[in-house]
Each structure stands twice: as C-alpha cells, then as structure tokens.
Amino acid sequence: MPLVSFHDVQKTYRSLQGVDYMAVEHFSVEIEAGEFFCLLGPSGCGKTTVLKMLAGFEAPTAGQILMDGRPVTGASRDRGVVFQGDDSLYGWLTAVENVEFGLRMQHVRKTERRERAMRYLELVGLNGQEQKYPAELSGGMKQRIQIARALVNEPKMLLMDEPFAALDAQTRSLMQIELASIWQTTRTTVLFITHDIDEAVTLGKRIGVMRAGPRSQVKGMVEVALDGARSRTDDVFLRYYKQVYEMIRDEVAKSIARAE
C-alpha cells in the first residue's frame, strides 16, 4: 500500500466575483513510503494546491486523499511542512526555540527537547547559530531552520513547497546537495514541489510532471535511476533532464500563453 494516494482529486476556487477556477481535476498520484517525490510543473499549474490539500490546510472539492489508508481531514504532525518564504518562522523565538516549537506543543520536557532540537540543528548544519533570531540569519539558514523544525517532530513525511526558490543560485545548489544528504540519512518520505527541472532531476527519485493549469493533472512520470550524488554534467543526468524537458516544454508554453 502506498503511503499517500490522491484519488481523482479536484479543487475549485471561487473568486470574490463569484467566478469558479478549477485548479486541478482528476488528479491521481501515489507516493510510496521512503520515496523522494518531485512534483514539477509550470507556474499556476496547481502544484502548491496539491501540497496544501495533502498538508490539510485546504480540503479537496471532490475526490479523496488518503494517508496510511485514512482520509486526510486536517493538518497533522504526521506531515511536516517547509514553506517557500520565511514568514512561517517565529521571529520572537531563537533558531533553537523555533525548532523546539512542535516538541513544546507536545509537552516534551525542556532538557529532552533542547537536546533533540540541537541534534537536528546539527543535521541541517546550523550548529553555533542556535541562539540567533531568524532576522539575524540569511535566507538559506532560515530554510534550514524550517527543515529542522519539521524533521525534529519526526513526521511520516515532509512536504516542501518550493523551499529554495527564493534563494540565490549558489545557496540553492548547496541546499539541494545538503537536502539530498539529509534524505540519505533520514529516508523520510518527501513531496517536493518545484518548477525547476534541474532541481527535480537533482533531488527526485520520481518526478511527476504536471500539465499547465487550469484543470491540471499529472501528465507523466519519470523514474530517476540515479543514486547517491548526482552531477549535472553526467550523461545520464542530462538524459533525464532532456526527457523531463520534452515533457514539460509544451506545458510551459501553454501556461505562458494563458497568462498573457
């Protein structure tokens, strides 16, 4: 049984003017436990909508989302979330206090939660920065806090909504390498949302390519049979890149045409 399955999911938004917009329709995907699944699509294709529904922040209009065979009814600490921007961090808490937040809500004792938080801060490479406030840290470091904050809760899976999209190219590439190694150690199931083919091929075990919105769904799947560190200059890497690129090219064109 897959860890997560989307069955024929549909999500319709109603604008303030009363106009309906169907973001996704007949969306079906299964994610296996331990998998690093990338959902790749052009902007406005509804990939963030998919993540919000799985996180439990929004309910699907039709269809079903199951986790461990049970329908998702709301947010839960089974599914840790890493957001794109830094506005989810608590600016009045230090880095380590941010990471401890979930454990504190679970009434985990202070010494234990501090110890666990420090372990995950080290995992994401933030040792020595734990007493700083988010405002004192760079964009990349803030994303590390978010990742540690989600992982320390030991969720069944991690949902990442374009977590590196707002970072500069060097930091992004570094964060990708570190996330890949974190995943190698923890083997947490990941749903990773991105619009960047390179990022998807670098990180994903499987890549679901979405159609342009509205009424989007998965157009095709690409299994990436690469393990360990991936190099952008490898022939195999480039072959996967090309395969995904061929699949998404028309969708990007459509999405741009519709936006104009």
């Binding site: 996180a55 439990g56 922040f57 709301g74 947010a75 839960s76 600490r77 599914r79 840790g80 979330v81 957001f83 921007g85 506005d87 989810s88 961090l89 608590y90 937040f101 979930g102 504190r104 809500m105 679970q106 904050r149 989600a150 809760n153």
Partner: peptide, 21 residues
C-alpha cells in the same frame, strides 16, 4: 501571516496553543 498559523498546525499545535504561542 497565514503560514505562521499553518506551520503551527502542521507541528501539532492545538487551537488554544496557537492562540497563546
């Protein structure tokens, strides 16, 4: 910011905890 509330929900905070913390 709505994401502050969402993050707390996904970290297992109850409504009362979200209010206070």
């Amino acid at each position: 910011a709505p994401n502050k509330i969402r993050a707390a929900q996904a970290l297992g905070a109850t409504r009362a905890q979200i209010f206070v913390h």
